[in-house]
Amino acid sequence: MLKHQKKWVANLLASFTLALVLFVPYFAQAYTGITIVMSAPTDSNLEFVEAFKLELMNARSTNLRVKVIDLSEVEKLVVAENSELVIALGVRALEASSKLKLTTPVLGVFTPLPTFNSLLVNSKRMLGNFSAIVLDQPYSRRFSLIKTVLPEAKNLGVLLGPDSSSDMDDIREVGESAQFNILQESIQLQTDLIPHLTTLLGVSDALMAVPDSLVYTRETVQPILLTSYRHQKPVFGFSQSYVRAGALAAVYSSSKQLAKQAAEISIKSQQLSSILPPPQAPKYFSVALNYQVARSLNIQIADENVINKKMLALEGQP
């Protein structure tokens, strides 16, 4: 999770800089081309590739070549390891790419932060040549969405599971600085889901979903959304699909937005002796809103564009 972003980034940057200073010779492996490795040719991956190529073309300042490998179609991942930046789309692609030569810079996209961390350690790679634009939106951004959509909400319910429970301190800290009262329940078993959710909904104004492979799955989406709806409490999701399924709103980054950020990193890092920046949260984002749910819950919400603009203003983006 990109949690308490400022502190997180600061700490990470410190480690990164230190690592950089000490081991620059180890990293240096300038790239002249880019290989995009897709886990599978999904719509979002294909859209990413297309948008990425377009971004590079528009940039003009670079002559990076782009190659695309579909992991589902090759038996072994072969990359020109000494001259390529590898952009891995999806966890499977990142895992495969993490096994490439340690000197080959790899940038993961469409990867959750906990999974990135895990791969980082398992692959014995280093920040600087292994990085990502993670899928997780910073909590500060998620809280500003809730503030913008539901200004009167004070008590926010957070239901955590084994993957997400360690985020609690960050959620609380960022939430409280955004003037929310964070109410938390943790579960270890899926059977505890509804009782704990019910307890939480009884005291919360809204529920903020946090990615967790036990709590928020394809199987639990129905009971979570139905139970919350019956309590007439809106759910703030973490993806566009959650909003389509019945959450009130979510911040997400589209393939195009991620491609834009990835292109920016590719160009900049090439100029910086191929050293990748630390893993980062999506820079560009969109807001998804479910107007039908809002209407049914008697919540009046502004137009998506208006909310988007407000959010951008809050982050100081144009």
Partner: peptide, 16 residues
């Protein structure tokens, strides 16, 4: 937590 994948974020969900 390495059991989270992009599918947890991007995967289609049934409309509830």
């Amino acid at each position: 937590a390495d059991n989270l994948s992009e599918d947890d974020y991007l995967g289609e969900l049934p409309k509830v």
